[in-house]
Design a protein around this nucleic acid. Structure first.
Length: 372
DNA sequence: AACAACGACAACCGCACGATA
DNA sequence: CTATCGTGCGGTTGTCGTTGT
């Protein structure tokens, strides 16, 4: 069955709208409402297709549309939301009153994307310059050094780490995607009793995990699940599979000794089977205690969670959400450093006024897909 | 002055999805 | 259950003004 065209192409005008056409459209909608867009142009006496009329109205003529340049605050908002949920322009637009998805998409493609690319290039160039000099040992923490050692491309991996270490904006360091699993601990514990203890985020680098994931210097990632924790080792010393872009999930108490999850109270065999079936394509079960999940599948799951959350927030709540992320800083103490572990600002979040609010919100969003 | 290159923005296109008959 | 429709969405293209040569 073919999809019917939105309008009869014959006799339909295309291209820029004239002032007269705008006035006819505005006048008609003011008097009658838009109703059925397909029928509108004929009723209004316009030689346009309904789709064109709808776009012209929603993107340009609607009275509450804000015209003019984007403020720095608006641009900042767009950048952050884009990092959170990607190119979901309509969702982003819903948090910027008076701005349309089309307008935001345009400003992103023409300004913000280029600006970000330029900033990143400058940061990398600076890192190269800094790295060319004998750096004082204190300028790199132990985790950075370790990452450089393990990457298949040591130079680029060090550049990546240095750029984050040099400009330690909390937003860049703290991967917002992973803040949610961190916060979701109570949600999991209360909802399905499958994961009752901590959910740690482990990495050998302070860089954003997704950036690490996308960088050429990383060959594989591993997720480890035991009865008490879900952790991610970006550069595990043990079983990084060369050139594999898959992610591995190990079930057991110790990644050196993958035990049958049946022996672990928090994850039963049924739970494991559920995990296999509930995770989308790209997942397979190779043997007892080991599941391989594709990078893409995992990313989409995580993005889904973030998106689900953001869509439930109104403008002020989104501001709070973003501000809170902005204010976070990696909570690294000597103990964490010794384990190459970064707890993503858990202390900061728990001390925050909005923690209860946060958790309430999180209880409303869907459970972590890996465990649902 | 003429033309090319570029950037900004409006508009278009095709697909997806939910609603409904 | 299926076909159809209306609408939303994101990517792409077209147009126009500006700037550089």
């Amino acid at each position: 069955m073919g999809r019917a065209p939105c309008c009869d192409k014959m006799g339909v005008k295309k291209g820029p709208w004239t002032l007269d056409e705008d006035q006819i459209l505005v006048s008609y909608i003011n008097n009658h409402g838009h109703g059925n867009w397909r029928a509108l142009p004929k009723q209004a006496g316009l030689l346009r297709c309904g789709k064109s009329c709808r776009l012209r109205w929603t993107n340009y003529l609607k009275p509450d549309i804000k015209r003019g340049n984007f403020s720095p605050e608006e641009e900042d908002h767009i950048i952050k939301l884009n990092q959170l949920i990607g190119n979901r322009w309509s969702t982003i637009a819903s948090h910027l009153p008076g701005r349309t998805d089309n307008e935001i998409k345009n400003v992103w493609n023409t300004h913000l994307k280029k600006r970000l690319a330029r900033m990143k290039a400058e940061a990398e160039a600076e890192s190269v310059a800094v790295h060319a000099q004998p750096a004082p040992s204190s300028s790199l923490d132990s985790s950075t050094a370790k990452m450089a050692y393990h990457g298949s491309n040591p130079l680029s991996s060090q550049i990546l780490c240095n750029s984050y270490a040099r400009a330690p904006s909390a937003w860049e360091i703290c991967d917002p995607v992973y803040v949610l699993p961190e916060l979701s601990e109570d949600l999991i514990a209360s909802s399905n009793n499958m994961c009752t203890s901590t959910i740690d985020y482990q990495t050998t680098s302070p860089a954003s995990t997704l950036d690490v994931l996308h960088s050429d210097c990383i060959d594989s990632l591993e997720l480890e699940i035991d009865h008490s924790r879900l952790s991610i080792n970006t550069l595990d010393e043990l079983q990084c599979q060369p050139l594999s872009r898959d992610m591995q999930i190990f079930i057991g108490n110790d990644r050196n000794n993958f035990e049958d999850p049946a022996g672990v109270p928090a994850i039963s065999q049924d739970d494991k089977a559920e995990m296999v079936t509930s995770s989308s394509q790209g997942m397979r079960s190779d043997c007892d205690g080991e599941i391989v999940i594709s990078e893409e599948s995992l990313k989409s799951s995580m993005n889904l969670r973030v998106d689900s959350l953001v869509q439930q927030l109104d403008g002020a709540e989104v501001d709070w959400f973003l501000d809170h992320l902005d204010n976070m800083s990696p909570a690294m103490d000597s103990n964490h450093l010794s384990k190459n572990t970064i707890n993503l600002c858990r202390t900061d979040l728990e001390a925050g006024d909005g923690m209860d609010y946060w958790l309430n919100l999180l209880r409303q969003v869907q459970p972590l897909p890996l465990f649902s």
